[in-house]
């Protein structure tokens, strides 16, 4: 090419800026709706919550700046303390869904006539709504005519009012929550088990591995992606435990089953709640707790991608 052709570029300068950059632009354009909505409905409200938590505001009149007063009050609020502890109980005990789901999956991972029927029966609780799960368990625990107490009386124990006893109620609700969560983890592990390499199992068997050793050294490492997802959904499920509490105890008896999300709702949005600032402060604390887990998940996902 010679320099003689150059002066002409103004007349027809080929593809425009848009065309030249379309490879870089296209992904952004496709992402744009998602990004805009995410910014507007997730990121922006997060920062707004931070801001509101420094105000005293009833949602009607003018907000009044109170600095850290809401957080100072949280520090002395026993109901808040109870809610935080309950959140940790949920986080810890909800993780039982992972081994639970794994063992049911191992048990169901065989070829027997009608296994699909059994699998769907085990999966059933995940399909029904949390509200229904809550109602079913409320009746199950009912102190006068509930199935639990009928069974307990059958083997000679006195009646227990699980949901009416402040020391037991949270565990009762977690047990109800585990029912669908175990089913969810089970499905994750069942699909994971389908991907287990039969040749590796064969080889391990030739080397004499069986039972627990086979599970620990051969099967579980191959189930790592499924375990990770099960872990993520269970943690998130535990932190979102709102509907079951609302249905089964409404936070009671005497506030002993509240978790942070429920307490926030009560303070800011329920019939008796008018404290947007205080509710926002609770939400901020919950967000910070969640942030620990989210950061961990993002970090381990990033590490996985790097390793690939």
């Amino acid at each position: 090419m010679t320099t003689a052709t150059l002066p002409d570029t103004h007349a027809d300068r080929g593809p425009g800026w848009f065309r030249r950059n379309r490879r870089t632009l296209a992904p952004w354009l496709f992402l744009a709706p998602g990004v805009v909505f995410f910014l507007f409905y997730v990121v922006f409200p997060v920062f707004q919550s931070f801001q509101i938590s420094f105000y005293r505001w009833d949602g009607l009149s003018d907000p009044q700046y109170v600095g850290l007063a809401n957080y100072r009050e949280l520090a002395t609020d026993r109901a808040f303390e109870v809610s935080v502890w309950n959140n940790f109980k949920w986080l810890l005990l909800y993780l039982l869904a992972i081994p639970g789901g794994l063992f049911i999956a191992l048990f169901l991972n065989q070829t027997v006539t009608g296994i699909r029927v059994y699998k769907s029966l085990f999966f059933f609780p995940f399909v029904i709504s949390q509200v229904v799960v809550g109602l079913v368990f409320t009746w199950f625990y009912d102190p006068t005519f509930g199935l639990l107490n009928t069974m307990l009386q059958g083997i000679g124990f006195g009646p227990v009012n699980v949901l009416g006893d402040p020391t037991l109620a949270t565990y009762g609700i977690i047990a109800a929550g585990l029912w669908p969560q175990v089913a969810y983890c089970m499905i994750l592990f069942l699909t994971g088990l389908n991907a287990v390499d039969p040749e590796q199992v064969e080889a391990a068997r030739l080397d004499g591995a069986r039972g627990v050793r086979m599970l620990w050294y051969i099967i579980l490492p191959q189930l790592r992606p499924a375990t990770f997802i099960a872990f993520v959904v269970t943690i998130i499920g535990a932190l979102r435990s709102f509907d079951l509490i609302s249905i089964m105890t409404n936070g009671g008896p005497f506030g002993s089953t509240r978790v942070l999300s429920f307490y926030m709702f009560e303070k800011a949005l329920s019939e008796y709640g008018f404290r947007m600032g205080y509710g926002a402060a609770i939400a901020v604390v919950l967000f910070l707790i969640m942030l620990c887990f989210i950061a961990y998940f993002l970090w381990s996902m990033w590490r996985q991608e790097q390793g690939r």
Binding site: G164, P253, F254, E266, Y272, G273, F274
Partner: peptide, 22 residues
């Protein structure tokens, strides 16, 4: 009670009444 007392006081107090009854 929950109309005579401010909403927030009513919520906290009625929870106390329930606890007292148990």
């Amino acid at each position: 009670f929950d109309r005579d007392a401010p909403a927030e006081m009513a919520a906290i107090a009625m929870e106390g009444f329930q606890e007292f009854m148990v």
